[in-house]
Design a protein around this nucleic acid. Structure first.
Length: 424
RNA sequence: GGAGAGGUGGCUGAGUGGCUGAAAGCGCUCGCCUGCUAAGCGAGUAGUCGGUUAAUACCCGGCUCGAGAGUUCGAAUCUCUCCCUCUCCGCCA
């Protein structure tokens, strides 16, 4: 959620940013509504003051044994009038909120402004494209031949675009998750969390999923709970409605959860198999920081995500996303894209973002500044480190051998009882 | 799911209609004192919105004691609904 005050102060600037985020908005309506809101507040507060003053007087007169009925008579209907104004105020505030809450975050100054995703800037390339001196296979063929992923069974159990890992496939999946958790929380500084995979409406709102992206979520109607699309949704809300101590910041968490996405209307022909499925596992890293440090922490986070990826020896690149490619919550995002031979392209395997105070404001997550003792919104950052289905695709495709087997990256072997290869 | 208890400031915890935005303690901050990383003394210490302002400094006012609705001139205190936590029982991985 954007800050209403900054909208009032510099609407042109924000409108301009929204334009580069593909959002056409005229903020003059919000400004009008806010003016109306202030007018109402002033009127209703004058009435409330009168009510309070007179009520106090009644108490005083009664205590002194007098007769307050004259004053009580003079207050006829004042509470009803207040009630009416209160309702109107709420209406105006709801109108403002309904406009502002669906606006995306502001842009950090370092974010390239473009409406064309092709302008994403590759800032780093690691490793090289593997070259095969045989006819290489895509992950679908490999998985079928090695019998490690069963889409048919997944479809039978749940539906289309649900995957089922099997045998060594399941073990590889589990090993990857263990490896990543280990990298983040044993070798890295993140505290390991296993949060609920279902969250309530408040949590879903705070993370930015509601109201705009309700149609992308699986909802349990009977309980008003939502299946998380990422553990970010859960981790953010660990501190919802709290005031943290500056001394405790930054707070660093890593979590491993299944992620659930309806992906309504997003499936393309090039995204069959494990590229885009309704349920997948992901290891997330998350930070609560002060505003002053959040961009340094973002850079650190990008390094941390690569610390997980690099030892796997995969070829990948890092991109700085342009304005129009950012998610709603993000003010700045780096994507890590791994090379997938079967796609003849790079696919996002991690996305590292600074959401600044966008989510903190929605979830009312604040901290007390040590010096000034003032209460301020924290900044929140999230990143994947990493998402497994695509990681598995990358390993299968990049590590495939001419005989159809797949070599397991060395870093993963300790998590697979030393197994070094998946064969038929 | 059933029975009972409870949800108050950073924390613990008083408070059953006006003198309570809230005792006391802890914690924290500042000052004083003390020949030493202790103790003592004093003061301060919720958030948010609006007005005012150069000011996110004062000052004035509104709101907030789990959430919402109600009774009343007036509600942390009374009534209703909902949510959550704890204890016991039941059920179940």
């Amino acid at each position: 959620m954007l800050d209403l005050k900054s909208i009032m102060e510099e609407p042109e600037l924000i409108q301009e940013m929204m334009k580069f985020r593909n959002v056409d908005i005229n903020l003059s309506e919000v400004i009008e509504l806010d003016k109306k809101r202030r007018d109402i507040i002033q009127d209703v507060e004058a009435l409330k003051q009168e009510r309070n003053d007179k009520s106090k007087l009644v108490g005083k007169i009664k205590k002194e044994g007098g007769d307050p009925s004259e004053i009580i008579d003079s207050m006829g209907g004042i509470s009803d009038r207040i009630k009416a104004w209160d309702a109107e105020q709420k209406e105006v505030e709801d109108d403002i909120k309904s406009i502002v809450e669906v606006l995306p975050n502001i842009l950090h100054e370092s974010v390239p402004r473009s409406l064309d995703k092709a302008d994403n800037q590759v800032i780093e390339t690691v490793g090289e494209k593997p070259s095969f001196d045989f006819e290489f296979k895509n992950h679908l063929d490999l998985a079928r031949e090695l019998d490690i992923v069963d889409f048919e069974a997944g479809g039978r159990i749940a539906g289309n675009n649900f995957a089922l890992y099997k045998g060594l496939g399941a073990r590889l999946e589990w090993a990857l998750l263990s490896y990543m958790i280990h990298a983040n929380s044993v070798e890295g500084p993140y505290q390991f969390i296993i949060p609920p995979a279902l969250v309530n409406e408040e949590s879903f709102y705070a993370s930015g999923q509601l109201p705009k992206f309700a149609d992308q979520a699986y909802k349990c109607e009977d309980d008003d709970l939502y299946l998380i699309p990422t553990s970010e949704t859960a981790l953010l809300n660990m501190h919802r409605e709290q005031i943290l101590k500056e001394d405790n910041l930054p707070i660093l968490y890593t979590a491993c959860t299944p992620c659930f996405r309806r992906e309504a209307g997003t499936y393309g022909a090039d995204e069959r198999g494990l590229i885009r499925i309704h349920q997948f596992n992901k290891v997330e890293i998350f930070k609560f920081t002060t505003p002053e440090t959040s961009y340094d922490e973002l850079e650190n986070m990008l390094v941390d995500a690569q610390k997980v990826l690099k030892p796997l020896g995969l070829h990948y690149q890092v991109s700085l996303l342009v304005s129009s490619d950012l998610g709603q919550q993000a003010a700045k995002t780096y994507d890590i894209e791994v090379w997938l031979p079967g796609q003849d392209g790079y696919k996002e395997i991690s996305s590292v973002s600074n959401c600044e105070d966008y989510q903190a404001r929605r979830g009312n997550i604040r901290y007390r500044e040590k010096e000034s003792k003032k209460v301020r919104f924290v900044h929140t950052l999230n990143g994947s480190a990493l998402a497994t289905p695509r990681l598995m695709v990358a390993i299968l495709e990049q590590y495939q051998q001419s005989d159809g087997s797949v070599v397991i990256p060395e870093a993963i072997r300790p998590f697979m009882a030393g197994l070094d290869r998946i064969t038929k």
